[in-house]
Simulated assay, not measured.
Amino acid sequence: MDALTPNSASRPATPVPARVPLPYWVRDFALVRPAVITFAVAATLSIACAVASYWQLVAARNDEARARDARDAARRSYVYVESEKQEIRAYQPLFVELQRRHFVGVENRLDWVEAIRLIQERRRLLPLTYEIEPQQPYKIEGRLATGDYQLRGSRMTLHMDLLHEMDLFNFLGDLRQQGVFTVQQCALRRTAAAQAGQGGGSAAASPAALPAALSADCTLNWLTLTPGARRTGGVR
């Protein structure tokens, strides 16, 4: 068989490469492998614990901030409620009085008409006439904080025959006890009978039998704070 193989004897032998010695830190790694594994596990756990602690700290600070905001909001609400209670104690008597005078609430013209009739009878005034226009929002100079209420007004034109000026002043003074109004304008004039001179009437005669010395034409604005009124154009 060897003779059939050509040049088998003349082939050179393949050289075997020499082994390079491994570095000592690779060659001796088996000795420190348990320590390295233990260190890696410990380092991983330490980093995980540090990250978890950091996020817990952030969450705790966020909870603290929310709790502080809630505390401040509760404190502001408490101060606001206490302030409102003090304002209610201070202004409730005035509010009740304004309700009694029909300034706060729904407009009640029947009360005004009845009040005018009673004042006329009690003061024994000469006949008077008046006309009340429809109510509408009332505008004033500047700003007025009315909350859920709206200031509304009804214009009333009034004509009175007077024996003297005090009849008008007494009438308006008594009328202020029944409501809140502003006097937009008022004009006093002497009548023709007063200018011509009074006749010899009896001092005990009734006011209706005496001639009027003056006449008054006034424009009043009855005011009402109406809850939940719709805001539209107004009168002044």
Rank of each mutant, 00 (worst) to 15 (best):
S8K: 11
F95Y: 13
A50L: 13
L214M: 14
P137R: 04
Q56D: 12
P17S: 15
H159T: 08
Q150T: 03
D174A: 07
I116K: 05
A194H: 13
D69V: 15
N108K: 01
A205D: 15
H102N: 02
G197D: 11
Q184Y: 04
G199H: 05
L163D: 05
A59I: 01
R176Y: 00
H159F: 03
N62A: 10
S8A: 05
E84W: 11
A229N: 06
R75K: 05
Y78N: 14
E107I: 00
R152D: 01
C218N: 00
R68D: 12
G234A: 04
F39M: 15
R101W: 04
T14R: 15
P127T: 06
M1L: 15
T232F: 01
Q184L: 04
L172R: 03
N170C: 02
P6R: 08
A205N: 09
P207R: 07
A73T: 08
G200C: 09
A203D: 10
A52D: 11
V81K: 11
L172P: 02
S202C: 09
E165Y: 06
V58G: 00
I37V: 15
D28C: 12
R75H: 03
A196I: 11
A187C: 12
V20K: 15
R76Y: 03
F95C: 13
A73H: 04
L158D: 01
S154G: 00
V180P: 02
E64C: 10
A90M: 04
Y80S: 15
Q184C: 00
G197L: 12
V51M: 10
D2W: 13
G199M: 09
L110E: 09
A50V: 13
Q184F: 05
D161Y: 13
D72S: 12
F171Q: 01
D28T: 09
D167Y: 02
W222L: 01
S8F: 10
T226G: 01
P15N: 13
R100V: 08
M160C: 03
R27T: 07
L110M: 06
A43F: 10
Y80K: 10
N170R: 06
A229Q: 08
A145E: 09
A18Q: 15
Q86I: 08
R236E: 00
E141V: 00
L220I: 02
I132R: 04
G173S: 04
W222I: 04
R176K: 06
G200I: 10
D63R: 11
A42E: 10
L94V: 04
V32E: 08
A229S: 08
A193I: 12
I119L: 11
R66S: 09
S202K: 11
D161P: 07
L172C: 02
K139M: 01
P134L: 01
L125R: 07
R89K: 03
P23H: 13
V16F: 14
L110H: 10
W222T: 00
E107H: 00
A70S: 13
